[in-house]
């Protein structure tokens, strides 16, 4: 889902970089000193997850997991994803430098939207219902990303429209896999550690109280 350097038009590059800057600023403001280890370690976890090949049909895909990132990190998704994309662009040559703003916006904005849509629902649902919301969050985040990528391309020139539409169609299986994956992860989190799903307002909550043994 990365766009490389040289594709997007200058107005698209500049405006999406501006919006990403804004998003990162909000994200950093929401992160307090005590949240740094949590967001940093989560960011590393999602980075590792994005490297894993998931078999789909005869081929395999990489997951982006921006739905799960949104649910667990809220606005902190912006800085976390910018860091992941920056590291990939610089050390692996994946993506691009000038399009970093556009790539971050296309992945992090759906994460934040999903956070606002589904995090409140997740907080007051049963485990099974949460898994269903998890599916919706996972697949809609990646669907939104595909649409946003399409928008960035189409706004840069009509000649990219067909490529953008093709990208959407070829990503439908990915949306399903992201959905199932996120549903399972949310189901497990609900059972084992529901506070992870509480997202942003609890970003700065004190570490969970030590268990008292009778």
């Amino acid at each position: 889902m990365h766009i490389v350097d040289g594709v997007l038009s200058n107005p698209v590059l500049v405006s999406s970089a501006g919006l990403t800057l804004l998003g990162v600023a909000v994200g950093l403001r929401k992160i307090e000193g005590d949240d740094i280890p949590k967001v940093g370690v989560f960011s590393a976890t999602f980075f590792i997850a994005s490297l894993v090949h998931i078999p789909v049909g005869p081929s395999s895909v990489h997951l982006i997991l921006n739905g799960l990132i949104g649910i667990t990190l809220g606005w902190a998704a912006f800085p976390a994803l910018l860091i992941a994309l920056l590291l990939q662009a610089i050390f692996f040559g994946f993506g691009g430098l000038v399009v970093l703003g556009a790539n971050t916006l296309n992945i992090a904005l759906p994460a934040v939207l999903v956070y606002y849509l589904y995090a409140p629902l997740l907080r007051r649902s049963t485990t099974k219902l949460a898994a269903i919301w998890g599916f919706a969050a996972g697949s809609s985040a990646i669907a939104l990303t595909t649409v946003f990528v399409g928008f960035s391309l189409a706004l840069s020139g009509e000649e990219f429209l067909i490529a953008a539409k093709l990208a959407f169609v070829t990503h439908i299986p990915v949306m399903l896999v992201e959905g199932f994956f996120t549903a399972a992860a949310v189901f497990l989190l609900c059972k084992v550690k529901p506070e992870i799903l509480m997202g942003e307002p609890h970003l700065s909550a004190p570490p969970s109280a030590p268990k008292t043994h009778p």
């Binding site: 989560f42 497990l188 992870i196």
Partner: peptide, 30 residues
């Protein structure tokens, strides 16, 4: 890992658990 629901669900559980461990680790780090 194969291309089926079982694989996707199991890997989802795996990363859910990895997140749990990450949270606990980050609390220890803090």
């Amino acid at each position: 890992a194969r291309s089926n629901l079982h694989t996707w669900r199991t890997l989802g559980y795996l990363f859910g658990m990895l997140l749990v461990r990450s949270l606990e680790r980050s609390e220890r780090i803090l």
